[in-house]
């Protein structure tokens, strides 16, 4: 069953162009020149009930426009959206009762009060029955280990503690669908792991559908099986993470440090991105050479001090997808 269906979603912003200076400001009062900005150029995807979908893309790609349309905040120019049976912007009030949203940086907690007070406020906002509220609060507090945290004023909390409280606030009313916008940005590794485990647990136990937008590939790998990549208002990839990894993410970045001075490096399928006296940054194409081969070669021929293997950044992945597509179109 689909929890979310998006069909050919388009959004055109009409912004008026304004020149600089006082005179142009006056002119634009009478003679406005408009400019159309296509934020979404026909986006379609589906999310199954109980899925955790990763929505990724660079800044300004259309991620937040999509999330806003799905939250009922934004009226799209055209296209159909159904989320758990509702058209978000038409049935907004009824719909958002079943929706939880964590807006990344924006504060949703009462600054001078303990987070528990915000939770009580949300109990009224969503009219959660008392016993259900208590049960749910206890469950989440235990899971995130914030028993003391929720009783001290929010202004005294760390970024991670605040994010945990925001998550609780957004999930208290047991929403069926949850949108998380950059949930781990700025958090330390331990807090990140805790948050990811929490989302996973809620998802598995309650079948809650999640859409997570993030810059962090780690978030994606830990949480999502399927991802949608969006760029310039178009979906450039929709499919399993594994598949992306095997077809496009076949490049690995290898950061090696050495005990002794090194000179050059040459191996089939490898590109030297950066070269220092004591380190290399190598990009290895795993279709040509197995990663094990590269490592073996390095260990055999150099005094290796440290090796670090990572995925390329998101911008590069998108570029690769484009290249792949072009190849596909041309041949």
């Amino acid at each position: 069953m689909n929890a979310i269906t998006v069909k050919n979603l388009k959004k055109v912003y009409r912004t008026h162009k304004r020149g600089k200076g006082m005179w142009n400001a006056v002119v634009s009062l009478f003679n406005r020149k408009y400019e159309n900005k296509h934020a979404l150029k026909g986006v379609s995807f589906e999310v199954e009930e109980g899925e955790v979908l990763g929505l990724i893309g660079p800044n300004g790609a259309g991620k937040s426009t999509t999330i806003k349309a799905l939250s009922g905040i934004l009226h799209p120019t055209s296209g159909d959206v159904k989320v758990i049976g509702y058209v978000p912007w038409k049935d907004r009030v009824k719909y958002v009762k079943h929706l939880g949203v964590v807006l990344g940086q924006k504060e949703q907690l009462w600054w001078d009060l303990p987070a528990i007070d915000t939770f009580y406020m949300n109990r009224e906002v969503y009219q959660i029955p008392n016993n259900k509220f208590k049960r749910r609060l206890n469950y989440m507090v235990k899971l995130l280990d914030v028993k003391e945290v929720i009783n001290s004023p929010v202004r005294d909390l760390s970024l991670g503690e605040r994010m945990k409280c925001k998550l609780i606030a957004a999930l208290l009313h047991s929403p069926k669908v949850v949108f998380l916008d950059e949930p781990t940005i700025g958090l330390d590794i331990i807090a990140r792991d805790r948050l990811r485990d929490f989302v996973k647990e809620v998802n598995q136990k309650e079948g809650t559908t999640f859409i997570v937008t993030t810059h962090d590939m780690q978030d994606i790998e830990k949480l999502c099986k399927r991802i949608v990549i969006i760029n310039h208002g178009v979906i450039v990839y929709d499919g399993l993470l594994e598949k992306l990894k095997s077809t496009i993410l076949n490049n690995k970045i290898i950061d090696v440090k050495f005990e002794t001075k090194v000179k050059g490096f040459r191996l089939k399928g490898c590109k030297l991105l950066e070269k220092g006296d004591y380190n290399f940054v190598i990009e290895a194409d795993t279709k040509v050479t197995k990663i094990k081969k590269v490592i073996d070669y390095l260990l055999l021929n150099y005094e290796v001090a440290d090796i670090n293997i990572t995925d390329p950044p998101i911008e590069e992945i998108i570029q690769r997808i484009y290249k792949e597509k072009k190849k596909w179109v041309h041949t």
Partner: peptide, 14 residues
């Protein structure tokens, strides 16, 4: 001003 009005729209109220 601070782009936070969304918070008012994700509440189930007018």
């Amino acid at each position: 001003r601070h782009g936070k009005f969304d918070a008012a729209l994700i509440k189930p109220y007018n």
